[in-house]
Simulated assay, not measured.
Amino acid sequence: MNSKFSLAHLTVLGCPPPEMTYIASMAGYDYVSLRPIYMGLPGEPNYDLAVNKEMMKLTKTALAETGVKLLDIELARIFDGMDPKKYEPAMEVAAELGGKHVLSSIWTPNREYYLEKFGEVCDLAKQYGLTVDLEFVPIAAVNSLESTVDVLKTVNRDNAGIMIDVHHIHRSREAAEELAKLPKSWFHFAHLCDAPVEIPTEHDEMTRILREARSYVGEGGIDVASYIHSMPEMPYSIELPNLQRVREFGYAEHARRCLATAKAYFEAHPRKDV
Rank of each mutant, 00 (worst) to 15 (best):
P183M: 05
V151C: 10
K272F: 10
I162V: 14
R256Y: 14
A175N: 01
I106A: 08
H170Y: 08
M91E: 11
D165Q: 01
E267F: 07
L130H: 00
S185G: 03
E233A: 12
R35V: 00
A175H: 01
N156H: 11
I37H: 03
H191R: 04
T21K: 07
H168R: 00
F79W: 12
E212S: 11
E135H: 14
A8F: 14
Y216L: 00
T201R: 08
L10I: 14
T11E: 05
P200L: 13
L63I: 08
L41M: 10
V151S: 02
L243M: 08
E178K: 01
S25K: 15
E74Y: 01
P36V: 13
D133V: 01
N159M: 13
E267V: 07
L41P: 09
T108L: 05
G99W: 06
I228N: 01
H188S: 02
K184R: 10
L182Q: 03
P200A: 06
N159I: 07
F5E: 07
Y113N: 10
A125Q: 00
A140G: 05
A252T: 12
S185A: 05
K181S: 02
E74R: 01
E92P: 04
E135I: 09
G81P: 15
V197Q: 13
V68P: 05
L152D: 03
A260Q: 15
P17N: 07
A27I: 09
Y113I: 09
V102Q: 11
G98N: 06
G14D: 08
S104T: 14
W186K: 00
N242A: 02
G221S: 04
P270D: 12
E96R: 07
D223M: 12
G119H: 13
S6G: 09
A64F: 11
G221V: 04
P196L: 13
V51I: 12
P232F: 08
E65R: 08
M82Q: 10
P241C: 08
E116N: 01
T66W: 09
M55F: 06
I162M: 15
G67W: 14
D273I: 13
P183S: 04
N46R: 15
H188V: 02
A175W: 00
H167V: 00
H269N: 15
T207Q: 10
E146G: 06
D83G: 03
R157I: 05
D83F: 11
M39R: 15
A90P: 09
E135G: 13
Y227R: 12
A190P: 04
D30S: 13
W107G: 07
W107V: 05
S237Q: 03
A225K: 15
L70S: 08
S226V: 07
T61F: 07
V121Q: 11
D72V: 09
L34W: 13
S215G: 05
A140R: 09
G161N: 03
I139D: 03
